[in-house]
Design a protein around this nucleic acid. Structure first.
Length: 294
DNA sequence: GGGCAGGTCTAAG
DNA sequence: CTTAGACCTGCC
């Protein structure tokens, strides 16, 4: 979106001409874990050492605890505000299923999150439930992260970096409720902190090569690798297959009990460079409609 | 109390 | 290279 109409207020920013963005859709499509809905329907979240609050009202976006400088330097990129989602939707709507799915999560934008935080978060997400994933991430942040500040009486903490996490014994990591994933987190933190792998350089590799690299890390399989690439490394042709996407793909396109590998190839072939966006719309739709679940 | 949840690891064919 | 089983833990 070019030429955003931004205004500074007392303790926030107002953006009047935001398109293709609904906070609920973006925060509830499985890509992030640190945004929470408040009683008034707004969302408060932590990213890049900031805590902000967002509310969309009559197509006007109110961002509290924020200034124009942060908006331009951090949040435009984080929320992918420079990307033309009309173009993506136009292309994807050639597929009837997607055209239908996009009516649900029409305000989804794929975030550009920090690679390390995303890496650890999705290691935690494997074979886990959302509420417990969020609790573990909050615990790790509060215990080992840095205090960012207070907002509406609550304290907020950044997610700990690799140098901090590698010093924590796996048995202590378990106090966050991550269970057997503690050793995965520890081992991955050691590899990242020691620069055996530069996860901040993965964006310069092909999607295929970045995937192979990521899967060398403990606790990172195909699905987690694809999520990391899509949500933090800008690999928008990645097509993560979780249980919901498997259900929706088998419901509309493929026979039941298709292999994950085949579903992934099918999705990437079908949606190409927009596969990741398609995955997000399908995921949101599948969960919203409780597709394939009693 | 058994089953399940935004999968991965391991050991085997 | 594909396929069973086990797996922390909290919540139903």
């Amino acid at each position: 979106m070019k030429n955003l109409d931004i205004q500074q207020t007392d303790n926030g920013v107002i953006v009047k001409n935001i398109k293709n963005f609904v906070p609920k859709h973006t925060f509830d499509c499985g890509q992030c874990f640190r945004w929470n809905e408040e009683d008034d329907g707004s969302y408060t979240g932590v990213a890049y050492d900031r805590v902000i609050n967002m509310k969309l009202d009559n197509n006007i976006l109110y961002i509290d605890n924020c200034n124009i400088e942060d908006f331009n330097n951090i949040w435009v990129e984080y929320f992918d505000f420079n990307r033309d989602y009309d173009e993506i939707k136009k292309e994807l709507s050639k597929d009837n299923v997607l055209a239908h799915a996009m009516k649900f999560g029409k305000g989804i934008r794929i975030l550009n999150q920090d690679p390390f935080e995303t890496l650890i978060s999705f290691i935690i997400s494997a074979n886990n439930g959302i509420s417990r994933i969020k609790k573990s991430i909050e615990y790790l942040s509060m215990k080992y992260g840095e205090k960012i500040g207070e907002y509406k009486g609550k304290e907020y903490y950044s997610f700990p970096n690799a140098e901090v996490l590698e010093k924590i014994r796996a048995e202590n990591l378990r106090e966050s409720g991550v269970g057997y994933r503690a050793s995965y987190i520890f081992n991955t933190a050691v590899v990242v902190a020691s620069k055996q792998m530069d996860i901040y350089n993965l964006k310069n590799l092909s999607t295929e090569d970045a995937r192979k690299e990521l899967m060398l890390l403990a606790g990172v399989g195909p699905k987690v690798a694809d999520c990391i690439m899509l949500f933090s490394i800008g690999k928008h042709d990645a097509f993560p297959i979780d249980v919901w996407v498997k259900r929706v793909m088998e419901y509309f396109y493929l026979p039941k009990d298709s292999s994950l590998k085949y579903i992934q190839k099918y999705g990437q072939d079908k949606f190409g460079k927009y596969a990741g966006f398609a995955q997000q719309y399908l995921f949101y739709y599948a969960r919203e409609a409780k597709l394939g679940k009693k």
